[in-house]
Design a binder for these strands. Structure first.
Lengths: 129, 129
DNA sequence: GTTCCCCCTTACGCGAACGTCAACTCGCCC
DNA sequence: GGGCGAGTTGACGTTCGCGTAAGGGGGAAC
């Protein structure tokens, strides 16, 4: 299970983010790179987490909401109460995402309709010209 | 076509926003309430626009992106060039939304899976206790 | 040895999206 | 005519998500 480690620069190139962003996520406890001396080294789980972080951001979630979700993917220390709390917030997020998924579907349909109308009125403008 | 007009307070109660928010959206040219003397009055189109604004926000769009989208729904003054530009940005947004819709579907599936695993490990914790 | 280059920490800055507070206007009620 | 309730315009404050210097360590290349 070679866990090929990436430097911060390699991470940035791979995910198109800046070093500042990675250090910021670490400060907010979204990433936990190892240290070799001073330097950070990012392993497999860091890459998986960063993928989820960036996706969560595209959905409009805050970093704090994303952090809570990441707990679910963690092999962290687990007692019953904590696991139940994590599951509860995860179910809340899931409900959010399902609602958003439905709304997004409707919005897409409406936008397609509007674009079609816009294209039609554009044809009118052109034929008048 | 009675366009029953709402005061700012009625708008706020209806949409669960603050007066500050409505005035802010107006300053950013997302809303255009009429004026009766000093006071603002919000009509049918303002309500429609606000609905779209709040939905756009839930999708993680910026107010500026939303403003551009609203142009498409407007009966504004139209020349060919402007209409084409509006349509172009609308098609960009549509592509964004479609990608987001797909990703969201995948993320929902993964999250359901993770929740299921979490529930399973919770059962283990409880049976050990 | 010193010049790069990459990385580090600390810290202040910034735009977005509002919250909050102060001071004013206007209609209305008693 | 004094007060109040709703609305108005600034102006400054706040939180989030980073950007951007400023200053320092350490190795490897010349």
């Amino acid at each position: 299970m070679s866990d090929d480690l990436l430097t911060i620069r390699q991470m940035c190139d791979a995910f198109e983010v800046t070093p500042r962003t990675l250090r910021f996520y670490e400060a907010r406890e979204l990433l936990f790179p190892q240290r070799r001396g001073q330097h950070r080294l990012y392993g497999r789980s860091d890459r998986a987490r960063l993928t989820l972080i960036l996706r969560g951001k595209r959905f409009g979630f805050s970093l704090e909401q994303i952090r809570q979700l990441l707990e679910l993917y963690d092999p962290a220390e687990r007692n019953i109460t904590q696991t139940e709390a994590t599951l509860a917030t995860a179910r809340d997020r899931l409900a959010d995402m399902e609602r958003q998924h439905r709304e997004l579907g409707e919005a897409i349909a409406e936008l397609r309709q509007q674009i079609a109308e816009g294209e039609a009125s554009l044809q009118n403008l052109k034929s008048d010209a």
